[in-house]
Design a protein around this nucleic acid. Structure first.
Lengths: 138, 138
DNA sequence: AAAACAATGCAATGGAATTGCATTAGTTGG
DNA sequence: CCAACTAATGCAATTCCATTGCATTGTTTT
């Protein structure tokens, strides 16, 4: 087993159970954000509800962040280390390829400043770009 | 009845039935984006499926656009006139207030340019800002 | 008026999120 | 080491919403 897996769980005070290690390992292997049903299929015949609660736990503990990419199904991806329960720092752009349907985090792509109207204040921003990714570009 | 209602429908070749006029009127009265269940409640006891299909039609014809604001339920708001079936021009920012839970379009707030990685191209962008709106700011 | 097409309403399906509860595992105090 | 407690799991069941099928109604065209 990868030591990094247990390390990540321990860092956020998540007790490393078998299921959590499986899910975390799977997340570590991805370069795209994945949906709950992706995890279910990959980890079959593991219990769906347990996977659901595992992801919820990860989310609450700041291990993963949710990406609403407009496809209906929420996608999940590992957070950066700096994230914690109260504040997510995933102010990077998420890219949804309309060809391969995959959703990627673009960590090097920061969301530019937006000038909100007077008396509006922001706590969080999510920018989803749809288009064609590099692999699908011909 | 407001002449603008039928005008808007006619502009996009949508035949103005009773239900469509009701829904369109409701959309015209909003200053926030609304969900399907909002419409259902407001127009009760009108048939839910008909409302659903009405919104779908509006969406296809470029009358409304969908906003995935991360609350799970898609919200709908009227498009600008320039929108059509194939291309939506709603590249403005959507703001979801975490206090009053309302979602607004900020038409004067354009999405800044984002420099994507090499070989990525974009066809659409959605920026959701979460925070406190002017009404909820104290 | 008849035919053709569009819109509607009801029923039914399907998928996914969520909760309740009993069982199992893992931890702590005696 | 055992008992008590807490956390995690697995199964069943529920709920909610999107979506589709189909028969009926309304509208337009010829």
């Amino acid at each position: 087993m990868k030591p990094i897996t247990e390390q990540k769980l321990a860092n956020k005070n998540v007790t490393p159970t078998a299921m959590r290690i499986l899910v975390m390992n799977m997340l570590l292997e991805q370069n795209a954000a994945i949906s709950l049903s992706d995890i279910e299929k990959s980890l079959a015949p593991a219990d769906r509800i347990t996977i659901y609660r595992t992801i919820k736990t990860f989310e609450e503990k700041g291990l993963v962040h949710v990406i609403e990419d407009g496809t209906g199904a929420p996608k999940y991806a590992l957070c950066l280390e700096e994230c914690d329960v109260n504040e997510h720092h995933d102010l990077h752009v998420h890219f949804n390829c309309i060809s391969c349907k995959e959703t990627f985090c673009l960590p090097n792509c920061k969301i530019p400043d937006v000038s909100l109207p007077v008396n509006f204040s922001s706590t969080e921003m999510n920018l989803i770009v749809k288009g064609i990714c590099d692999k699908c570009a011909n």
